[in-house]
Amino acid sequence: MSSPTEPPGYAAAAATPLIVPTGRRARLTRALGSSGAAYVFLFPWLAGFLILTAGPALYSLYLSFTDYDLINPPRWAGMDNYMRIATNDPKFQDSVRVTLTFVLLSVPLKLAVALGVAMLLNRGLRGLTIYRAIFYLPSLLGTSVAIAVLWRQLFAGDGLINNLLLGIGIQGPSWISSPDTALYTLVILAIWQFGSPMIIFLAGLRQIPVDIYEAARMDGASKARQFWRITLPMLTPVVFFNAVVQTIDAFKAFTSAFIISGGTGGPINSTLFYTLYLYQEAFGYFRMGYASALAWILLIIIALFTAFSFLSARYWVHYDD
C-alpha cells in the first residue's frame, strides 16, 4: 500500500518521465482530469462560498422580508421591515448619521495624517524602520478590547486627558459621557491607527522617480508646488486604494463603540454605530428579519460608496501606463 505523501518508487518514476506515477493521488488525478483536480483544490473554498456565503446571503435577503424571532418560523411581512426603516425608525436615522459622521471624519483625517507622516519619513532619514514600527504599532493593537478599555479611561471625566488638561489649567468635561463629544473620541481612536495606510503611502512614495523632482527643482518649482503637481498626482492610485479600504473598514467598526458605550451606543445614541444597532436588533431583541433588512441596507450603502469611488476615480486617479 502506498502512503499518502510518498508513493513507493516515486523517485524512480520521477527520474524516468515515461513511467506514469502510481499511488492513490495520481490515480485520482488521472480519473478526474486536470480540471477535476482544480476543483479538488477549490473544494474547501467552493463549499464555504456556497454554504457560508452565497446561501446565507440569499437567505438573509429572504429573511429581510419576514418577521423572524429564531423560535417561530419566519412569517412573510412583505415590505414592512423596509417601510419601517425608511419612515418610522429614529434609531436607524441616528445610527446612519453617527456612522456617516464617523466615516467622513475619520477616513480623510486618518489618510491626511498617514500621508503627512509618510512624507516626513521618506526623506531618507536614519532610523526609518524604528519610526515606522512605532507608528504602525497602534494599528495592530487598536482593534482589541484592551485599547477600547484604555480609551474609556483616557477620555473619562477623571481620566488621563483631563488630568493632563488640568496641568495647564483647563477643566475638561467627561468626553465619553457627553453626547456632543463621545463620537469624537472614537474618531481620534481611528486616526491613532494611521499606521497601515502610512506604510502603503511610504511604499507608494518610493515608486515616484527622483528625476521628476530634480527636473522640477531645476525649473524653480517650490516644495508646495512639487507636492501638488508631482507627489499627490503620482500617488493618487495609492490614495484611492487606501480610501476605499479604510472607508469599508470604518463602516464595519464595532468593538470600540461597543466597549466604550457598554453596548448601548449611548449617550443618547451618539456612538450608535450602524453595526452596533444591527447587533442590538439581532441579538438583543432577536428581530432577525428586521436585522437582515438592516444588513442589506448596509450592503447597499457600502456598494454605493464603492461604486461612487470607482466612478469618480476616472477623474482624479492617474495611472501612468
Binding site: I51, P56, A57, S60, K252, L299, I302, T306
Partner: peptide, 20 residues
Amino acid sequence: LMLGTLMLPYHVTLIPQYVL
C-alpha cells in the same frame, strides 16, 4: 465571485450563519 466576497460586509451572512 471570490474577489466580490472581499467587499461583502459579513453582516449580510451573519444571521443565516447563526441560524445554521
